[in-house]
Write a protein that binds this DNA or RNA. Structure first.
Lengths: 203, 203
DNA sequence: TAATCAAACTAACGACCGTTAGAATTTCTC
DNA sequence: GAGAAATTCTAACGGTCGTTAGTTTGATTA
């Protein structure tokens, strides 16, 4: 039967391998996970991996790309949905909420990315740090919007603020519990910190 | 010559091995680093490692302990130096500043700890998560002090606040640049966020 | 049903890993 | 300086790793 859609049988297996690998990489790290382990979780024999991927490195490279692009797109779409004229602080909230959501409740690509990017061979790492930089620039632009409107505290460093916020969110992959606070609540708490600080009355 | 101090020759080599291993673990991860690599950086042949350590696992275990204890003690001492009657917010600042300093400018044990704790064999990991928990409890008590004085914002979750702050600090090992902002400045920026938020005027 | 191609499997290779036994060397004691 | 103890090195082991060649199975077309 002529398949009209672009869904050859192999693409399904390919996806299964990617998801199995991302899940294991996220839990254990890059070198800690063997191709035999990935194949087993994907329900495939080890040698079969090489029908779909050139090497372990090319497999991890695709996972890294899926993670970065996914988080970036989720963030960008959420901000775009507000319209260009929206309050830039609301834009920041949309970006952080989408980031937390993609990181913690979607597939494992984004969390695997954060976990293994520093462990991956240097050549691959450098290539993907660029992609991360695009994402960083996007968020930096939102913070610039806030600053240009004169709404940033006088002693606040834009870059440092961005780093600390992303750190707070990204680190959550190491303590997040699906039965505890939701990704949205985590992002919301961060926004409270940004908008008013953690304290009640004056300084 | 009868050495009065407890510094046999071997302790020096032992320390060199620990520092070499911590440095490599911090950069690459646990399984990514071989004993041959560690030995070479320490200026020792591979087999000699086993005169000082029982196994790779016992070596990494000591590094984990040095990291956790070091950060905890640095934090605890800095808080204690303020006196028990000090402003609890100042205590928090002292704890975070000491944490950032130990993490970023002292030896690599603390940063190696954060990096490889999730990658290490489960038995070792569980043992050391307990040590981390003691440290977490210590900081949680300071935040409780702030809350009990009624100085925490009404919509602030104590646990979430602690997690986000430690995340912001801990993640800095992935972007910290000795030529950029100092550890103290990083902690100070976080405290600005906690005390007043990032924005200038009212909400 | 026979031929063709896609997809997955089997079995093995060389390289590197953590680890160990035993010899060589250095350092300390008398 | 001789002997003992502490420290380091040499050389190799079994096991696992990523990878590959060749074969088998499954699906597609005529």
């Amino acid at each position: 039967m002529a398949d009209g859609g672009a869904l050859p049988k192999a693409q399904i297996t390919r996806r299964l391998i990617l998801e199995a690998a991302a899940s294991l990489f996220r839990q254990k790290g890059y070198a800690e996970v063997s191709l035999r382990e990935i194949a087993q979780l994907a329900g495939v024999k080890t040698g079969s991996l090489y029908y779909h991927f050139e090497s372990k490195e090319s497999l991890v490279e695709e996972i890294l790309t899926l993670g970065t692009q996914g988080a970036f797109e989720a963030s960008r779409d959420a901000v775009a949905a507000l319209g260009a004229a929206a309050d830039p602080v609301d834009k920041l909230e949309a970006a952080f909420t989408a980031h937390a959501r993609f990181l913690l409740e979607k597939e494992d690509f984004a969390s695997a990315n954060l976990k293994i990017l520093p462990q991956v061979p240097p050549a691959i790492r450098e290539r993907h740090v660029r992609q991360d930089r695009e994402y960083a620039t996007f968020v930096a632009a939102i913070i610039d919007e806030i600053a240009d409107a004169g709404r940033l505290g006088p002693d606040v460093d834009r870059t440092l603020l961005r780093m600390l916020c992303f750190g707070a969110l990204n680190w959550s992959i190491s303590w997040f519990d699906p039965k505890g606070r939701s990704p949205s609540e985590i992002a919301a708490q961060l926004m409270i910190l940004i908008r008013r600080g953690a304290l009640a009355s004056p300084s």
